[in-house]
């Protein structure tokens, strides 16, 4: 990847974080930790990897995103709004009565959302079905499945993983957000997961582990041409990544903080953005 592309993706990731934080600030609370940890991934996917049409969200040949960790919906919405799937103003309706932006992703409500998720584990099998369907219909589409590391406690994930590799669904890319925390605390304390990359490799994937905030490494992993094994990417990540104060908050799955605290989070990301722009390409 050239420097201009790398700069653009880093820039987009910071824009997503700012939009996300503004969105959460408008409601005063929300799933901040797991939303922040997928912002770099979303920037790479929607900035350079995925094929989609903003003016035709249901275009059958598009690439699809299944955010099985549906509580990262606010990050997905920020990304989609920045790309023009719906007006930025709508972000402020998050979780308001009658909103099209519910806490967890809903394909029947939000333009650009490809799959309804939130009951953890269920996105994995749906992603398999979408990828299988696209393959059988002869579409060029790829499906990108984002799974949480806490989510992967759910047995359904492993049923879906076995199917993905066993049936050689190479048009489906698994991305596990190993941000090392779940709702009640560190995954290591709640339910140790051992080596997720090795587990996925053993399930039959071509599995790699990359830094979750390294847009260049993510791009390389996401665009690798698969052989006969589907690709799985374990993102070595930090829950709340990109906002130091959130990263350092022990319980950051969902946070309720006053407006000035949200402003301080936003200011920190804006400072990063300014620094990036100053540094330039």
């Amino acid at each position: 990847m050239n420097k201009a592309d790398s700069y653009a993706l880093k820039h987009f990731a910071l824009e997503i974080r700012i939009a996300l934080l503004e969105e959460l600030k408008a409601r005063g609370f929300g799933h901040i930790g797991g939303s922040l940890s997928v912002c770099d991934l979303l920037a790479v996917l929607y900035g350079k990897v995925m094929n989609y049409r903003v003016d035709d969200p249901q275009w059958p040949d598009r690439d699809k995103l299944v955010c099985s960790k549906g509580h990262a919906g606010p990050a997905v919405y920020a990304t989609l709004a920045l790309k023009g799937f719906f007006p930025m103003d709508q972000l402020k309706t998050l979780n308001r009565p009658g909103t099209n932006l519910p806490s967890h992703c809903d394909r029947n409500k939000t333009p650009g959302v490809d799959c309804t998720c939130g009951s953890l584990g269920q996105g994995t099998s749906q992603a398999v079905g979408i990828a299988l369907g696209d393959k059988l219909k002869g579409r060029p589409s790829r499906t990108f499945l984002v799974v949480g590391d806490g989510e992967i406690d759910e047995g359904q994930c492993w049923e879906a993983a076995m199917f993905t590799a066993g049936k050689k669904l190479t048009n489906l890319v698994w991305i596990v957000d190993e941000n090392k925390k779940q709702l009640d605390g560190p995954t290591e304390e709640i339910l140790p997961q051992f080596d997720l990359r090795a587990k996925l490799e053993a399930f039959g994937f071509d599995a790699v582990r990359v830094k979750g905030n390294d847009v260049e490494a993510l791009y390389e992993a996401l665009t690798k041409q698969p052989g006969d094994r589907p690709i799985a990417i374990v993102m070595d990540n930090i829950k709340g990544s990109g906002v130091k104060a959130v990263e350092e908050t022990a319980s950051n799955h969902s946070m309720t903080v006053p407006a000035e605290t949200w402003d301080s989070f936003i200011a920190a990301v804006k400072a990063d953005l300014e620094a990036l722009e100053k540094e330039g390409v």
Partner: peptide
């Protein structure tokens, strides 16, 4: 459970 989820995904894909 996986079968039911795959069925849902296939429905999204037009089946």
């Amino acid at each position: 459970a996986n079968m039911a989820g795959i069925a849902a995904g296939l429905a999204i894909a037009g089946f």
